[in-house]
Simulated assay, not measured.
Amino acid sequence: MNKSKIIATGKYSPELAVSNFDLEKVIDTNDEWIYSRTGIKERRISQNESTLDLTYKASLDAIKKNNIDLSTIDLIIVATTTPDYFIPSTASLLQSRLGLNDSHVTCFDISAACTGLIYGIQIADKFIASGSVRKALVVGAEIFSKVLDWEDRGTCVLFGDGAGAVILEQSDKGILADYTNSSGDDNLSLTLPAVSLGSPFSLKELDCHSNNYLKMNGSEIFKFAAYAIKDSIDHILVKSNLTIEDIKYIVPHQANQRIIAKVSKDMKIPLEKFYMNLEYYGNTSAASIGMALDDLYGEDNLIEGDKILLIGFGGGLTWGSILFEY
């Protein structure tokens, strides 16, 4: 059976950086309150860009940095919960934007919230294993700023906009193990109604008294996230017959620094093993793992054979992990 390997990463974040101090001007909060509870200092907000725009720019970043031949991409998967359209899919629009309409490319979107990129990579890996796909482009992209209640400091301080992309191809080594899971959220602890609000962020008074914004039970999600990370690590170590010492970096969904710190303490895993960049981007949902992985690759301190564990967890409830060799 064929294996697949991540051969390219890319990301895109909008130009507008909104700091915690900026948020002080529109809601009852402050930098110390936000940073101490989340580890976030700023987030990027899309002003005039669509989810497709972010997806396209992250894909181009991965393609150009790694000299990828576009004609070899046979599969495009976009993970998003904030698409521009329900029909057509963002993946199909991306195919057209990349100039691949005359190519035989399978395109579709998936919705698994913050676990989206993990699900997407797992699906792409199976396509490649079947021999039907040479290269797969998987992108996580979100514009959460258009679905946030900017008067709710429990949610609006957490999220940002962005996109992260990975490209996989056939290889004799690469992905070593994967694990995904889901548990129907009967309590609806994280919800986003199927309504496109399309309201851009602006540092002015906003009408945020709608039932169509994202809502989250923070304490319940915190407990779930800590469990999901531990469960993902445990399953991957058993499936791969490895120990945590064999793993160079864990790249978790960038949700909250306190969640990662709790898992680090409970599982006695050094905090420095967890790669985090949420201080600068906030929680970008399906984009966060891809964006963090691209930053990790950019630091150029990885060597061939290093093992990296990606972990996602989010609404659904969904969670899962991918272990691969650099």
Results as ranks from 00 to 15, higher is better:
residue 292 A to N: 04
residue 226 A to I: 00
residue 257 Q to H: 07
residue 290 G to S: 14
residue 1 M to H: 12
residue 130 S to Q: 09
residue 271 L to S: 08
residue 11 K to F: 07
residue 175 I to R: 03
residue 218 G to W: 03
residue 230 K to Q: 15
residue 31 D to A: 10
residue 192 L to G: 03
residue 205 E to S: 14
residue 215 K to L: 06
residue 157 V to T: 12
residue 89 S to T: 13
residue 219 S to E: 12
residue 185 D to G: 04
residue 289 I to M: 07
residue 170 Q to L: 09
residue 195 V to T: 04
residue 204 K to M: 15
residue 72 T to K: 07
residue 169 E to Q: 15
residue 237 L to E: 07
residue 194 A to C: 11
residue 157 V to C: 15
residue 234 D to N: 14
residue 131 G to A: 01
residue 323 L to M: 13
residue 84 D to P: 00
residue 283 N to D: 06
residue 298 G to T: 08
residue 157 V to D: 07
residue 210 S to Y: 01
residue 11 K to G: 02
residue 171 S to T: 14
residue 71 S to R: 05
residue 154 G to W: 01
residue 168 L to W: 02
residue 299 E to W: 03
residue 249 Y to R: 03
residue 113 A to T: 11
residue 325 E to Q: 10
residue 59 S to D: 06
residue 254 Q to F: 02
residue 74 D to P: 05
residue 139 V to D: 11
residue 227 Y to R: 09
residue 275 Y to K: 03
residue 28 D to W: 02
residue 102 D to E: 15
residue 71 S to E: 10
residue 204 K to L: 14
residue 54 L to Y: 10
residue 57 K to H: 13
residue 249 Y to L: 02
residue 104 H to P: 01
residue 181 N to C: 14
residue 101 N to Q: 14
residue 317 L to K: 02
residue 279 E to N: 13
residue 235 H to Q: 12
residue 151 E to Y: 05
residue 211 N to Q: 10
residue 73 I to Y: 04
residue 314 G to T: 12
residue 315 G to K: 07
residue 210 S to L: 05
residue 196 S to K: 07
residue 164 G to F: 01
residue 19 S to K: 06
residue 51 T to G: 09
residue 92 S to G: 15
residue 43 R to A: 05
residue 304 E to V: 14
residue 95 Q to P: 06
residue 144 F to C: 15
residue 169 E to N: 12
residue 106 T to M: 10
residue 293 L to A: 08
residue 30 N to K: 09
residue 192 L to R: 04
residue 64 K to I: 15
residue 258 R to W: 08
residue 5 K to L: 05
residue 105 V to K: 04
residue 117 L to A: 09
residue 9 T to L: 10
residue 90 T to N: 14
residue 232 S to P: 06
residue 147 V to C: 15
residue 248 K to N: 03
residue 12 Y to T: 09
residue 88 P to M: 12
residue 323 L to Q: 12
residue 169 E to Y: 10
residue 85 Y to V: 00
residue 244 I to R: 05
residue 32 E to W: 01
residue 304 E to K: 13
residue 183 S to K: 07
residue 179 Y to P: 09
residue 205 E to C: 09
residue 141 A to Y: 08
